[in-house]
Design a protein around this nucleic acid. Sequence first.
DNA 1: GCATGAACGGAACGGCCGCGTCCGTTCGGA
DNA 2: TCCGAACGGACGCGGCCGTTCCGTTCATGC
Lengths: 209, 209
Amino acid sequence: MSTPPRQERADSRRKRLRLIEAAREAVAIHGLAVTAAEIADRAEVGVGTLYRRFGSKDALVKDILLDAIAEMQTVADASLADPDPWNGLASFLIALSRAQSANRGLAEFTASEASVFSDDVREHSVSLRCAIQDITARAHLAGMLRDDVTWRDIVVLSLASVSAGECLGVRAANDQWQRTVALLLEGLRAPGAQPLPGQSPTDVFSGLA
Amino acid sequence: MSTPPRQERADSRRKRLRLIEAAREAVAIHGLAVTAAEIADRAEVGVGTLYRRFGSKDALVKDILLDAIAEMQTVADASLADPDPWNGLASFLIALSRAQSANRGLAEFTASEASVFSDDVREHSVSLRCAIQDITARAHLAGMLRDDVTWRDIVVLSLASVSAGECLGVRAANDQWQRTVALLLEGLRAPGAQPLPGQSPTDVFSGLA
DNA sequence: GCATGAACGGAACGGCCGCGTCCGTTCGGA
DNA sequence: TCCGAACGGACGCGGCCGTTCCGTTCATGC
């Protein structure tokens, strides 16, 4: 009586994996608003196959995004485990900037209001946010980070670095983000002769808040 | 025989000015891709009026953009006239970041490839570019700016600051760009214990190159 | 006032693009 | 060899945008 779970056909499995990989690339390049056709073409598959396997384009893209967030979580945890608080912060800022430079979808997630995402995305981002808060707090406690910089600043600065690379032709400016991050880190570490202008807003929400 | 140039009707003139002002606001908020309807609504005018007066949406937007570029030229010239080379550079970077934060269209122009613009836009941008080169060169000569930073870096950093503000709700993060610029300036002035990673690309083009 | 035509507004048109479906075809597995 | 699961991509639909067109309004000059 138990319907034997009838295992996935071989070609079907291959195309499913190809679709996931294609979606990963497509989201990285075009952002969260990739078209279904772009993904299917890249996987050398008809759009029908995409919809049969994933229900909707958004479902597939969401899967990809969740993966990317989980990956950043791993990086954040590693930075938190760094014995040197400053190194932990710096390496995280660098890693986040690199990841967002390489993955436009991730950058868009970080830059968007949390409210536009579904519950499970928000869940993941909450725990990532906590890790970032911890990384920042630890650097503060160790006296290695200007007092007037908050964890939200760190997130914003990672986005700033990304835009640096994105605005120019991707090919030529692959490493522009590294230059921006390097300059920012010098500024972050300095004791801060001048306090930062403006107030670090506490009521601002981003994909990470 | 000379057709007397029949002066502009009063209401017509009023609506023309309203359209220009509305376009300025709309481009600042929505960027160079504003829709004709957005501009017309903002001016409380029918779209027909826009087309009768300006021929096409793009013509109007281009006018607005040229204005914005000319304004930056003025600022650049002023910075160049500052007796202190460092002050000149810093004030220009701040002003450019402020202008781009307040005007999305201007930021898009800076971030785009020059080739997508018409000849007269390119002409304006060439002379602005020269001024920026001068500002940077002067700071270099005075030994007040890290050697490994180029004028293109300056342009890119202004964009980085902008993204900082843009990614969060405009309202709440009005001054985020100021924080980013302040941190960057600290990094720029420092003698640079560590040389910047990557190479400053010389073959990169932006709206300003 | 009144006549005139310049100026107006916005509905309508055509083109484009993206999502998701549907059905004739292909092909893996038994 | 046969069956039905899986495929692909043309197609229908809806939404958006630039631009045009024409019936209406109204500023202007007499």
